[in-house]
Design a protein around this nucleic acid. Structure first.
Lengths: 253, 253
DNA sequence: ACGTAACCGCGAACGCCGTTCGCAGTATTT
DNA sequence: AAATACTGCGAACGGCGTTCGCGGTTACGT
């Protein structure tokens, strides 16, 4: 009784579980890989918003409806894009055996991918989206975490999640620092400066204006939480966070 | 020469810099606050996607076009929503003087707001969006960070950014753990389990299946990076990360 | 005092979006 | 040879953000 409806509901909800093509009809003229490639191209150029079924279809010389033979909807396409980008992270690096060092290196390689594909930061993190390459990534990170004693399995996964969130955020900072500020961004900076001068937020004003020990810090060229010597600071911040997260016995105070 | 065009380009790009109403015409029948309230109501119920100009207008008994008298576009509305939600974070708490303790407390209060307004996690972090209450929040965080010696001003802002990213991620974990898994989520969990059983990712399989020291960890009830005893673990993780981030001299190795 | 400039409300419309339907054509199974 | 399961895709649906333009209203400039 439940069999059929049950199967229809649970069966193949994710792309990874659906076969790329059936065994019956004519050979498909395109492939998931082609769709993904076209979509990533569009996203690299114009952000995730530029990835519409209509645009992707145009890129491939067909109509939007045709894409549904390869993919169940836009979500599937994004899944494929994310997993493909994840696959660009090099997982062949040798491990030194020191988890912090190895994860910092992994984070650096991950950030490079983020900088190459800024749309990754626009992907809504609501639904998780872990495909085959994502699983390889997790497995690699867990391998790097193997020597850590004080953490349970789920605890290690949580550490990886923290690392990913950290890399994403720092990549966003770096991206905004590189791009010449768009209208909105300039407006935010201006607003921030204006409020800082208004006197109600002295510490914020001080933090924005001064105190850069090593880098240029005129202040206005960066966004809000963005003010930081991002380039060289990346490894430093990641290392510190990981060190704090992985120590067997946390500092008590 | 540049005066007019320049002003038109830079003038009042953000909601906070535009007056709520002019001095000329009839009094507006509604207010930005009402729009914001309606929008937040819709978002609380149906996610950020449920916040459309048409829906908000319907909620207020008018047409979509009318809203443009209060707000320049959807982005402005989201700005208002975020800042209003930020205002729900209590900033009247006494500071103990220990930055880590004070920031952990702040993080906990922030998480409560995230859990009350899950749509906050769906807000694209691309554009920063810091309004008046956001500034108050930053000022408060910087006040808590005042005793920290080894960090420059921008460095402190960076630390706050890390904290926020961390809270957002952990809130997402907590939210997914509470909600009964939707179709997609269940599918992800099933896929994860299937791959774990396939043998190619032994460490991942182990991490998913075992090793929960204190909480229920059957594995399937959680998503991918989500496996963790999230509830009680929140403070622990935040404390560790902050401790690592704020130590004057980072561990060398 | 009064003309006019600036503002409010809003119906109608534009161009985009994701997605569904249905049909003609094609390859495989029975 | 019939049945079956697939492919490609034109047409259409409902929803979206946003713009235009118009009639009515208020306050400023003189």
């Amino acid at each position: 009784m439940a069999g059929k409806a049950d199967r229809a509901a649970t069966e193949a909800a994710l792309v990874w579980e659906r076969p790329e093509r059936g065994t019956r009809g004519p050979a498909p003229e395109r492939s998931r890989e082609q769709l993904t490639e076209a979509a990533i191209g569009l996203a690299d150029a114009g952000g995730l918003a530029a990835v519409s079924f209509r645009q992707v279809a145009r890129e491939l010389g067909t109509g939007p409806a045709s894409l549904y033979r390869y993919v169940a909807g836009r979500d599937d396409l994004v899944d494929l894009m994310v997993d493909t980008a994840t696959g660009e992270i090099d997982l062949d690096a040798e491990l030194t055996g020191d988890p912090v060092t190895d994860l910092v290196a992994l984070a650096t390689r991950t950030q490079r991918v983020h900088l190459r594909h800024p749309w990754l930061l626009e992907v809504p993190p609501e639904a998780l989206r872990v495909g085959p390459r994502g699983l390889d990534y997790l497995e690699f990170a867990l391998r790097a975490l193997k020597p850590v004693a004080g953490l349970t399995g789920p605890g290690k996964l949580e550490a990886v999640a923290v690392l990913n969130a950290l890399v994403a955020m720092l990549s966003g900072v770096e991206l905004r620092a590189r791009r010449s500020p768009t209208g909105r961004q300039a407006a935010q900076a201006a607003y921030l400066g204006a409020v800082a001068g208004r006197g109600g937020h002295p510490l914020l004003a001080a933090a924005l204006a001064g105190g850069a020990a090593d880098g240029p810090a005129d202040g206005a060229h960066l966004g809000a939480g963005d003010a930081a010597g991002a380039g060289a600071g990346f490894e430093r911040v990641v290392r510190r966070v990981l060190a704090g997260l992985l120590v067997p016995d946390p500092p008590v105070r």
